[in-house]
Simulated scan of single mutants.
Amino acid sequence: MAVYSFNLNGKLTRVEVNSDTTLLETLRQHLGMTGTKEGCGKGECGACTVMVDGKAVNSCLILTSQMDGANVVTIEGLASEGVFDPLQDAFMEAGAVQCGFCTPGMIMSARALLLKNPSPTDEQIKESIAGNLCRCTGYVKIADAIKKAAASAKERGVETWKL
Rank of each mutant, 00 (worst) to 15 (best):
T36Q: 15
G46H: 01
D53K: 08
I62E: 05
S59T: 00
S65H: 07
L23V: 12
G41A: 09
T21S: 15
V57W: 00
V50R: 01
I62H: 06
A47C: 12
G46I: 03
Q29C: 04
G35A: 13
Q66P: 07
L63Y: 13
K37D: 00
K42Y: 01
D20Q: 15
L63Q: 04
L27S: 13
A47L: 10
M67H: 07
C40V: 01
E38H: 07
S59Q: 01
S65G: 04
S19H: 05
L27H: 15
V57M: 08
E38G: 12
D68R: 08
C40L: 09
G39R: 02
D20H: 03
L61D: 11
G39I: 03
E44S: 14
C40E: 08
C60V: 04
T49P: 09
K42E: 11
H30A: 11
K42L: 08
G39T: 02
G35M: 06
K55S: 14
L31R: 15
A56I: 01
D68L: 10
T34S: 15
T34N: 14
N58T: 07
D20T: 15
V52R: 04
G32S: 11
T26W: 00
I62K: 07
L23N: 05
M33L: 14
E25A: 06
S65N: 05
M51K: 09
C48V: 00
V50A: 07
T64E: 00
L24G: 13
A47W: 06
T36E: 10
R28G: 00
T26L: 00
T36D: 14
A47R: 03
G46C: 03
Q29N: 09
C40S: 07
Q29L: 10
T64K: 04
T26Y: 02
D20C: 10
V52A: 06
A47D: 09
L31G: 03
E25C: 09
S65Y: 06
L31Q: 14
K42Q: 11
T22C: 09
D53A: 12
C60F: 01
M33H: 03
G41Q: 02
V57N: 07
G54E: 10
L61Y: 05
E25N: 15
S59D: 09
M33R: 09
L31M: 13
M33F: 06
E25T: 13
V52G: 12
L63C: 08
G35F: 09
T34Y: 03
R28K: 10
N58Y: 12
S19W: 04
Q66C: 11
E25W: 00
G54T: 05
S65C: 03
